Amino acid sequence: MNRYFQTPPVVKNLIIINVLVYMATALLPVGNEIIRFCALWFGASPFGEFHSYQFVTYMFLHASVEHIFFNMFALWMFGRTLEYELGSKRFLIYYMVCGVGAALIQLATAYLTGEMPIQLVGASGAVMGLLLAFGVMHPNAVIMLLIPPIPMKAKWFVVIYGVIELFLGWTGFGGNVAHFAHVGGMLWGLLLLQWWKRNGTIRF
């Protein structure tokens, strides 16, 4: 079967885990407790407290149906190609590094700007790392935008998206979205790709 119609194991399992966790938080009586212990909390908060494991668990929590849908759709769209090219083990390492790195950048900016306390949930930082990797490894691949519906080369899409996220994070526009986490996921992804390239682990 053509790879386009297949979903490799890590991408498939990440989607399954995210969906199951979202269903648990939305439908089970212990949903609020899952969020309390597994979301990433930083600073004094009456709702939850910080634990180091939350740098991982926060990536599997989502705030709404729209939140998880768009993250999982992007994971499926870009992650399949990347997992086939990087290999499942390296792909998972890349995904987790981008997710943890995104949280570190968001917490650092929140601390420096005094925007405390904060709660962080979602796979967006890790997914933005995937978008960055796709743009770096397939710069001339054409991505069809949804709004507006125009084609754009992946390299320009990544640059424009990154600039917009940086602008929104810097100006404070965009509500409760963790824009610096998105930028952080892209930054850590770029650093890891360049390190692998220098070591001859991957080529692009």
Score class of each variant (00 low, 15 high):
Pro148Asp: 02
Ile68Asp: 08
Lys89Gly: 04
Cys38Tyr: 04
Leu191Phe: 14
Trp170Met: 09
Phe60His: 11
His62Pro: 00
Tyr94Trp: 07
Trp195Gln: 11
Tyr4Phe: 15
Thr7Ala: 03
Ala39Lys: 09
Thr201Arg: 10
Met116Ala: 08
Ala133Thr: 00
Phe50Asn: 05
Ala26Cys: 04
Glu66Gln: 11
Gly87Lys: 08
Phe73Lys: 12
Leu187Ala: 15
Gly101Val: 03
Met137Leu: 15
Leu120Asp: 13
Ser45Asn: 10
Gly99Ser: 06
Ile105Pro: 05
Ile147Asp: 14
Ile164Gly: 10
Gly48Thr: 00
Thr171Asp: 02
Ile17Cys: 09
Leu132Phe: 12
Val30Pro: 04
Val163Gln: 05
Met137His: 06
Ala141Ser: 13
Phe173Met: 15
Glu83Pro: 07
His138Asn: 13
Met128Cys: 06
Leu193Ala: 07
Tyr22Ile: 01
Leu104Ala: 09
Asn13His: 15
Trp76Cys: 02
Phe70Ala: 01
Phe50Thr: 05
Leu14Met: 14
Asn176Gln: 12
Gly129Phe: 00
Leu75His: 11
Pro8Val: 05
Trp196Thr: 09
Val19Ala: 07
Asn18Lys: 12
Lys89Met: 07
Ser124Asn: 12
Ile17Gln: 07
Phe60Thr: 12
Asn140Thr: 13
Gly200Arg: 09
Gly99His: 08
Glu66His: 09
Glu49Val: 10
Gly189Ser: 02
Ile34Arg: 01
Pro9Thr: 02
Phe78Pro: 00
Asn140Lys: 14
Val19Gln: 02
Gly99Pro: 09
Ile118Lys: 06
Ile202Tyr: 00
Glu165His: 14
His51Thr: 11
Thr7Leu: 03
Pro8Asn: 06
Pro151His: 02
Leu92Thr: 08
Val163Asn: 04
Ala133Gln: 01
Trp188Gly: 00
Leu82Met: 03
Ala123His: 11
Phe180Met: 10
Glu66Phe: 13
Pro29Asn: 08
Ala126Trp: 06
Leu166Glu: 00
Val183Glu: 00
Trp188Ala: 04
Gly48Phe: 01
Arg203Ile: 14
Ile68Thr: 10
Phe37Val: 09
Val163Glu: 04
Leu14His: 10
Gly172Ser: 04
Phe69His: 10
Met1Ala: 14
Phe47Ala: 08
Ser124Ile: 09
Trp195Val: 11
Gly79Cys: 06
Tyr94Gly: 04
Met77Gly: 03
Phe50Glu: 05
Leu75Ile: 15
Glu165Lys: 15
Thr7Trp: 02
Gln119Met: 13
Tyr111Gln: 14
Ser64Cys: 01
Phe55Tyr: 11
Leu191Arg: 11
Arg3Pro: 10
Ile164Thr: 14
Ile118Asp: 03
Met128Trp: 06
Glu66Asn: 11
Leu192Val: 08
Pro117Glu: 02
Ala39Gly: 12
Leu86Asn: 04
Gly87Glu: 06
Tyr58Glu: 06
Leu61Lys: 02
Ser52Phe: 15
Glu85His: 15
Ala74Tyr: 03
Ile160Trp: 01
Pro139Leu: 05
Arg36Asn: 02
